[in-house]
Amino acid sequence: MKVCAVFNTDQLGGAERSFINSLADLPDYAKVSIWIPKLKDPERLEQTILSLLPKAHVMRFKLNGFYYRSSRTSKFSKPLLLLSFIFALWRIKGFPLKDTDILWLNGNKVGALFTVLCMLRNWKGSIWWHLRDYFPASSLLKRLIDRKTPFEKHFIANSFSVMDDFKQQYPWQKHLHVLYNSPPQVAINASEAREFKGSIGIASMLTPWKGQHDILWMAYRQEEKLVELGIREIILYGDDIYLTNRQHQNYKAALEKIASKFSQIKIVFAGLKPLSEIYSSLDILIHSSIKREPFGRVIVEAMANGLPVLSTGLGGAGELVNNERAFCYEPAHDHMFIEALESAILDISNPVRRKKAIQFVNDLQKQIKQQYSDLIGSYIL
């Protein structure tokens, strides 16, 4: 079984870490080639791939940034988007597909692009289109999904929430699968009691729907209360790692402007850091998405490291959190946020919730193993 795995970006985010773990879990008999689009700076992603897959053959292909930017913005008209798509298609026209059995596409941009390429080549194999986000309602994409092809199209959702959303748009699609993002192994010290030192934070790319501004505004309005609870700093891990021309632009500057209003609590923009540093420096992780989250990998990463988690629980994140293993609140709801935060601080040394969270991560690993087995089995059959 020859698998060609294509990343959606050359930046390292949660979707990319999950994809790497999924590739590492492929059967030993699978021969894997890995391709990264060269857009910005692929070094960090490539190093992470090789750290988990030291024998992997990692290659790069050119994908014009204009296609990437125009596919994420409403400023461009459909003709310009189509033009950028055609140009991107021309850039990958020589992509090697010979003898490939499975073309695993990690996201919608490469999903649409390579599906058209395979149609033009009359390629015969199996496409695994990994839905890392809720599928956009688009007439062009609908025509592409509905079109009969000489190859099988399998759609892999990273949560039941994403799959249900896709099924509502395409109820006639047969090959639908759920494959949760692989969580890390539970840390050795995850079950140990913690001492609250006053650091809470968010680990996410900087983008409005991730809700960093929502947390900062609530924290600003309730700064006195947070100080009473012993909070000294709010750390924002992550950066604007994706090329974009839309509402993401200048978002970090907007966050910095809010941060400048605080008089007692320190707001730290920590940038991109190793996971070990993130989860060792925080006392509580806040998962702050204000729109549906396809999965919420940082939630299970925090649980695997023994951290209490606050979450809005929207979308796929709702499949990961409940009141037994996390603390939930609604966006822009100061009282619920403060109440959840206070409960998390009081509960930080309580082993019961932490043990339930760790058990959930272990159970999730077993569930993913079965999901993966079903996915591989669907191809073999």
Rank of each mutant, 00 (worst) to 15 (best):
E319Q: 09
G313H: 12
F327A: 10
S373H: 07
I345N: 10
Q371L: 10
F337E: 10
F327T: 10
Y329Q: 11
I348F: 05
R353F: 05
A344E: 07
N323T: 15
E342V: 00
N323Q: 15
N362C: 03
V361Q: 02
Q359D: 14
F337Q: 05
R353W: 04
K356G: 02
L314P: 02
G313F: 11
I368L: 07
L314F: 07
E342S: 15
I358Y: 00
N350G: 03
Q371E: 15
R354M: 05
R353S: 09
I345C: 10
L310Y: 02
Q359R: 01
S373L: 12
H333P: 00
Q365M: 10
Y372D: 07
Q359E: 08
L341C: 01
L375T: 12
Q365H: 03
G318Y: 14
F360C: 04
L364W: 04
A332Q: 13
I338S: 01
D334W: 12
R325W: 04
A344Y: 06
Y372I: 02
D334M: 08
Q370L: 02
D374C: 07
A357I: 03
V361M: 04
S343N: 13
S349W: 01
N323K: 14
F327C: 08
H333I: 03
K369T: 07
Q367I: 01
I345P: 07
D363T: 03
K356W: 01
Q371H: 12
A340G: 07
R325G: 06
Q371S: 09
Q367T: 14
E330V: 02
L341R: 01
L364V: 06
E342H: 08
G313N: 10
P331A: 13
R353D: 06
T312F: 10
N322I: 11
I348S: 03
E330L: 10
E319A: 09
L346V: 03
R353L: 09
S373R: 02
G315I: 11
K369Q: 12
M336H: 12
D363V: 00
F327Q: 07
H333T: 09
G316T: 06
D347K: 03
E330F: 11
R325H: 08
E330D: 15
A326S: 15
T312K: 02
A326I: 12
D334A: 14
A344P: 01
V361P: 03
F360P: 09
T312R: 02
V361N: 05
